[in-house]
Design a protein around this nucleic acid. Structure first.
Lengths: 216, 216
DNA sequence: GTCTATAGGGAGATAGAC
DNA sequence: GTCTATCTCCCTATAGAC
């Protein structure tokens, strides 16, 4: 079903507990800021045991990123499957993505952080290739949707790649902005009422910024 | 004139050369990913000499951030000073900010990265307080502009803090997205033609997403 | 699959000569 | 204002017992 092995609900494997803990640490302090000693302590293992589950620190980081991208890619696939007009599908993708980012507080930060670390991940490990595939899949799905909406005349003519970056900035960034976002908003960006508000904001900007004049 | 001491053009001081080099390194690898040894080598100094100019690594980092925020704050002040309708001023602020981020390739990354490092900078150094003041000044200026536009009836009714985060996502994020942005766009986000395109994109989204129906 | 022990190196920071 | 030398600590990773 998924590229990540299916797991029965029960007690999570050591591998999964390591991934969970690493995700939180990497989100807070970034790749270089996390020590394997700290991670091992958090999981309740000896430091060396980590190397039984992952070859190296870069590979562990890539696995954390790949798992997040897999979640998002599957979410986007699900959101797009339900059908509807291009605008209906786009709004559903955005809504569901915001719900997903709100439910997984580490995702937005790790995603943005990973974009900034061009250097670290220069390898060709399985996890890294997986992550790149998921990214490509997500981007091409949404690009296709935008092009379809333009061809159907529902969207005005826009530069698709540019709009993709704008959308990421509007959806992912607020959940990664941490204390800054909290201070600006006056409340936690992850608060359900704030998530709802953001959905409305993005939707309004899309409707008035994307719909062709004929559609208004 | 400015909170940062005025400097004659001539050969830059050691302090400035350290700040310049540190800015580039922090942008590429983040706070924890940069070693002072590497920084010292890059500047052409011994590692210990850095401590003559800065008390500690966190303070150096805060100084780098404060300098960037000072540049942006001054830019925003200048952009707002010229007058015009709220929409004209908002568009000018955005245009000038995009020009500034394009001209200073490290700024966007360091700004976003610094938002993610809630932990590291818990201190109360002069540099850090300065940075927070600049941030507050920038945010309150733009917030006031948005509120003025709403009260004047030129902007539709929006949630000001939420729109602030959206604007940051649309303007700052693309310049921080590095190789990812380059791959999506098919060209360097810092390329003049792409900067021009982004100005147009943000402006179009603002015009069609912000203007009150009566203004259309 | 987890552990202890350790290798080999780099980190931030300080002391004190020049 | 820059240097060399050094302190102490932590890092990733490996070896090998259990």
């Amino acid at each position: 079903m998924s590229a990540v092995a299916a797991e029965q609900p029960g007690e999570p494997s050591s591998r999964d507990r390591i991934l969970d803990a690493a995700e939180g640490l990497f989100a807070r302090r970034g790749y270089a800021g996390v020590g394997l000693r700290e991670l091992a302590d958090l999981v309740g293992l000896g430091k060396s045991s980590l190397f039984h589950h992952f070859e190296s620190k870069p590979q562990l980081y890539a696995a954390v990123c790949a798992r997040i991208l897999a979640r998002i890619s599957e979410g986007v696939d699900r959101s797009l499957a339900a059908g509807g007009s291009p605008m209906e599908r786009l709004e559903r993708v955005v809504d569901d993505l915001l719900d997903l980012l709100a439910a997984q507080p580490n995702d937005a930060r790790i995603l943005l952080r990973s974009l900034f670390e061009d250097d670290e991940l220069a390898g060709e490990t399985r996890e890294e290739l997986e992550g790149r595939e998921f990214t490509a899949r997500i981007m091409s799905s949404i690009s296709a949707l935008l092009r379809e909406g333009m061809e159907a005349g529902q969207f005005r003519s826009v530069h698709v790649p540019g709009l993709l970056l704008s959308l990421i900035g509007q959806t992912v960034f607020p959940f990664a902005s941490g204390e800054f976002g909290q201070e600006i908003l006056g409340k936690d960006p992850f608060d359900p009422s704030e998530v709802k508000r953001r959905k409305r904001e993005v939707r309004d900007l899309l409707r008035h910024g994307l719909l062709a004049p004929a559609g208004r």
